[in-house]
Nucleic acid binder design. Structure first.
Lengths: 197, 197
DNA sequence: GAAAATGGCTAACAGTTGTAAGCTGAAAAC
DNA sequence: GTTTTCAGCTTACAACTGTTAGCCATTTTC
């Protein structure tokens, strides 16, 4: 890669990282301005346009990236579970670790799922569906269920995990334990209930 | 009530209604400006302060109001179910009707649940917990479960219903039917699974 | 080595925002 | 009937926004 393209990639990364870093409980992506992001990344406002058409394009990049890292992590978690250990517990652990070490990635997905940009919403929805599909495949292979039931099951589980994640964001580690236990209980109910149908 | 207080209440309502009316798939409460709301309500920007300290105070009022109407509706639904009819089906119907006739109220609750204002988040959370508590009471009385299980069950059900509602917002009536059926299946899984534990 | 491409910059614009200061006329209090 | 209260108004300001135009230095291309 040429020295030029290399530098370009570097400031592009700086923009993405600057955006992620500015997210917090009090700050959503949609509340970030182009100028703020550019400032944080250390470039002039107008240089932003050398990399992204507008903030939406930046955001979509971030969603794709975030979704990818999450899915990779979960896949690893499932592999870990395959060689001993409850799939439910391991998945929940993996997910909570993800939230703990990438809170802002999760915040982005969580908020833009119900945000004001249709492109964002469907990008996040796509990520979640990937997610459901992988879990569903696992469930069907390991429990031999109807496609319909397996899908409903996988979807319900993903929704509950996501929702618990959202709550966990603001919690102390101690309260998280309680949350995680209840989540385990809920997922078990779904597994048992699905099998019974 | 004096003629003065009456007029004041009227423009206060106008502000609340103006805010609700400006919400849409493309517009969130946090993206509304004080000036826009005032304009829509037909008053000068600075007159806004005669009614609310800032936009956050307006929003909290809206959350409280929205949560109240939703809970009242659901309570009615449950009464309807008490005299014949599946509680699950009736509740889902009631909820989807609510979303259909008050999409913007639901949008507000949905978005501010994961929004950037701590006050908003806990206001919505409080509404949801009311919601869970009422359902839990019902479940415990009618199925005789542990407190723990009943709570986990009620919570899971509320989350799934909310989440389905979010999806339903952008859907055609035809697709909603499919969604509703899957939701029924999911709630049944939780009922069955809870009983099995 | 000359010419073209390009990432980053400065300057400048028109528009919007929240909010302060202060006036006015009508209702409320006395 | 006089005084006080107050919802709503106009004007004003400083801050910030996204975006255009155009220059510069360095890398890339030929």
């Amino acid at each position: 890669m040429g020295i030029r393209a290399q530098q370009k990639e570097k400031t592009r990364r700086a923009l993405v990282e600057a955006s992620f870093n500015q997210l917090s409980a009090e700050r959503s992506f949609s509340s970030l301005s182009l100028r703020e992001v550019a400032r944080e990344a250390g470039i002039a406002p107008t240089s932003f346009y050398r990399h992204f058409k507008d903030m939406e394009e930046l955001g979509l990049t971030m969603v794709d990236e975030g979704g990818l890292t999450l899915r990779q992590l979960m896949r690893k978690g499932r592999q870990r579970a395959a060689q001993g250990g409850s799939i439910i517990r391991v998945s929940i652990e993996t997910f909570l670790e993800f939230i703990d070490s990438n809170p802002n990635v999760f915040r982005l997905l969580l908020r833009e799922r119900s945000g004001t940009s249709a492109a964002f919403r469907s990008a996040v929805q796509r990520e979640i569906e990937h997610f459901i599909a992988e879990l569903m495949e696992y469930l069907q292979a390991n429990a031999g269920l109807t496609v319909e039931v397996a899908h409903a099951q996988a979807e319900a589980m993903v929704i509950l995990v996501f929702s618990a994640g959202a709550e966990a964001l603001d919690m102390t580690p101690k309260k998280r334990k309680v949350l995680a236990e209840r989540l385990v209980l809920q997922l078990r109910m779904i597994v048992k209930g699905g099998a019974a149908l």
